[in-house]
Design a protein around this nucleic acid. Structure first.
Ligand SMILES: [Mn+2]
Ligand SMILES: [Mn+2]
Ligand SMILES: [Mn+2]
Ligand SMILES: [Mn+2]
Lengths: 235, 235
DNA sequence: ACACTGAATTAGGTTAGACTAAAATATTAT
DNA sequence: ATAATATTTTAGTCTAACCTAATTCAGTGT
């Protein structure tokens, strides 16, 4: 008996974990302007070598219907099918983070790694049920917007705290989830999304003095940490 | 910068999804006596060809520390490390089924497929937190015993309803989770684990007439369905 | 003891996705 | 405009896990 693959399953998830990772990286590196993403940037982000990236982009861009548009020596951007899958993965990731945090009591520095793995493997049903028991949450534990189902997500207008002007109040919109140690440090300093901060001073090596509302003393943080905190103008 | 793999992660989950599937199949086909499992039986169960099985068994049995003991032309059985991983997968699977059913409101014919996929990818933390919010459940939705963490599981003393003697009350201990359509039929007939049944009659083609307590009429089921219901003597 | 048959293994091939080393191309600096 | 440098691609390998076709082996019946 030949086992014929479930066509539903195949159509829902025709992409491998590896292809998924490329698509999500292209989405995130391309940003809101959907800029061409370079081979180098992808290799760096994915932790693999550039020839592997070139090979994958050639393969992906030669398949029909194609997931990406690739221009040799120039870069790659998502085609419609690739963009759909990438945003779906972002939704899976952020819903999973919310779920792991709220239901399974993970701390906010623990959720990313698990979500990064599971986002590839959950079914549509799992996604829908998790969204339902959470009451269709809008925001993940790090302040990132959870895109709606089947919808293209949006990039928030936010900028690294490291590039915010001095003495101008800013509200934290999100923090990068990619480094657990940074997250623990950020939490220790009381810098959750929603908190308003003012940069008092930047010293020569780039480290910041930041004032929080209703706090006596300012907090100090290095450039690196200030690069993983994102803010907008306080309304 | 070379990315060195997280040693914890590696030691916890050094097995691929494919190897996982072999280990679980060897566990289940070997049964409580840990009988040698044949190449054919594995190929059949896993839906792959026999030469692929031979190749995998040769590879697995030549690695140190070995997951399986393989005797050419005779069969394969689990080595200690393989048995540990296989029981861990069984625990993951059954906990996930319980979780999907109780928390995410999956029906009992929907849980198996999702658990079969996710069992390979959840972390120890996920396993522990799910067990905690469920209150360390003992039994999965199909009546299977959930093994304790790090513990070797047990095979229950149960037998297919299809081989139970006539007119002797039997209590359903579990039902096979591998066929969703059968599960829906079993549910329709009111045959949950815990229910006591008596076989009134077996007709020539092997189909059964089964009486349930406190029910007027008997239910009819074919041989196939009676082979996916497991029972023990009613105390 | 020997032929038959079914099960298992060997031999050789494919695909996905990674790697290194070398070559080609693009960008930047003189 | 040309040379130096950085980026990208090509060429050739490797491993995991599957496949088909051909061969070998083990158990059975005469
Ligand atoms: Mn989805
Ligand atoms: Mn996040
Ligand atoms: Mn585990
Ligand atoms: Mn089950």
């Amino acid at each position: 008996m030949l086992v014929s693959p479930n066509p539903q399953k195949t159509s829902v998830h025709a992409t491998s974990e590896s292809v998924d990772d490329y698509l999500k990286a292209i989405l995130e590196l391309g940003g809101s302007e959907e800029a061409l993403v370079t081979t180098n940037a992808l290799a760096e982000r994915l932790g693999i070598r550039t020839p592997s990236v070139t090979g994958m982009l050639q393969k992906l861009s030669s398949e029909r219907p194609t997931l990406v548009h690739y221009e040799k020596h120039r870069g790659v951007r998502l085609a419609p099918a690739g963009k759909r899958r990438a945003w779906e993965l972002v939704r899976h990731h952020r819903l999973l983070e919310r779920f792991l945090h709220d239901v399974l009591k993970y701390s906010w520095d623990e959720v990313h790694e698990e979500a990064e793995r599971l986002e590839h493997f959950i079914s549509e049903r799992f996604e829908d049920r998790v969204a339902a028991i959470l009451g269709d949450p809008e925001i993940d534990p790090h302040g990132h917007v959870i895109p709606h189902k089947y919808a293209q997500g949006m990039f928030r207008n936010e900028v690294e705290l490291a590039r915010w002007p001095l003495r101008t109040p800013a509200t934290i919109t999100s923090v990068s989830d990619r480094n657990a140690a940074s997250l623990r440090e950020i939490e220790r300093l009381g810098l959750k999304p929603g908190v308003t901060v003012t940069i008092e001073d930047v010293n020569s090596s780039g480290s910041l003095c930041v004032r929080l509302p209703g706090q006596m003393d300012v907090v100090r943080m290095n450039k690196n940490l200030a690069g993983s905190i994102f803010v907008t103008a306080t309304p």
